[in-house]
Every structure is written in C-alpha cells, then in structure tokens.
C-alpha cells in the first residue's frame, strides 16, 4: 500500500530509533551508580569499601529514635532490614518526622554511623485531607 521509498524509510528510521533506544539504555545502565539519588542502609552494609566521598543515604526515620541535645540531633535511618545511626547539626526541614522518609547527605564514619551535613525530607505518594488521615489512624 505504500511505495517502495516509504517502506525503505520506515525500515531505516525504525533501525535508527532502536539504536537510539539501545544507546540510551546502555548509557543509563552504565551510569546507574550516579543516577540513584541515595542508597539504603542495607546497601551500606554490603559496600565493598567505605569511601571518604560525600554520599546520600535514604530510608525511613525509625520510630522513637530521634534524640536532640544542645549540639546535634541523632536519629536512625531504617529500611526495615538494616539501619544506620545518623548525627546532624543544623536546621531540619518541616516534614522531617518519625516514620517518614528522609534523605541524609554526608559522610560515613563506619558501616553503622553516618555524619550528615544536610537533611532532606522525602515526601511519599500519599495525598489526603487531615480528616481522612485521622479516620485511617482510628481504624488501626
């Protein structure tokens, strides 16, 4: 139904398109380490070596783990498999709370202790009015 030239072009452009797709895939795959914004506490446990470079660790703030003193705030980031203790001095975002997502940027002291230079609160995908939240909690 199409001319020979059109058919040839369809073939040619599909090949080109697949090549672009494959290239992008390979680039992203090879850059995976840099594409991830943060690693989990479990990832920290299996790191082949502890680098001195700045990294980000993300997870949930463990329940009842936040301690504040005059100098700093201490809390535990957990992914419900392993956890890591974090110390931080500075201002924390408003949404920072227990059992909420958090991303800490800083340096690893060892596999269980992290010194954060910056704290970001991670918002989850749940959007609801306060009344609905209350109703959900009372059901629990």
């Amino acid at each position: 139904m199409y001319g020979k030239k059109v058919k040839l072009r369809i073939f040619f452009f599909s090949i080109i398109f697949l090549a672009i797709l494959l290239t992008t895939f390979l680039i992203l795959k090879s850059l995976e380490e840099n594409v991830v914004y943060f690693i989990s506490p479990s990832d920290v446990k299996v790191l082949p070596e502890l680098s001195k470079k700045k990294i980000r660790i993300g997870g949930m703030v463990k329940k009842d783990s936040i301690e504040t003193n005059a100098k700093e705030i201490l809390f535990i980031i957990t992914d419900y498999k392993s956890e890591i203790k974090v110390s931080f001095s500075g201002s924390i975002p408003n949404l920072f709370a227990e059992e909420k997502g958090v991303v800490a940027e800083g340096f690893l002291k060892d596999r269980n202790y992290f010194t954060a230079k910056k704290i970001l609160a991670k918002h989850d995908e749940n959007y609801m009015p306060p009344e609905v939240k209350k109703a959900l909690e009372s059901k629990k």
Binding site: V36, Y37, F38, L120, K122, E125, Y127
Partner: peptide, 18 residues
Amino acid sequence: WSTLHQPSSINILSKSTI
C-alpha cells in the same frame, strides 16, 4: 531508581494514593 521525587500517586493499574 531511588529518587527524592515521590512515585506516582495516580495509577491506572493499581489503586491511586490521592
């Protein structure tokens, strides 16, 4: 990947979380 941005709240195949 792990991102700071939250995942999609509106899903066609699974339950939406909005």
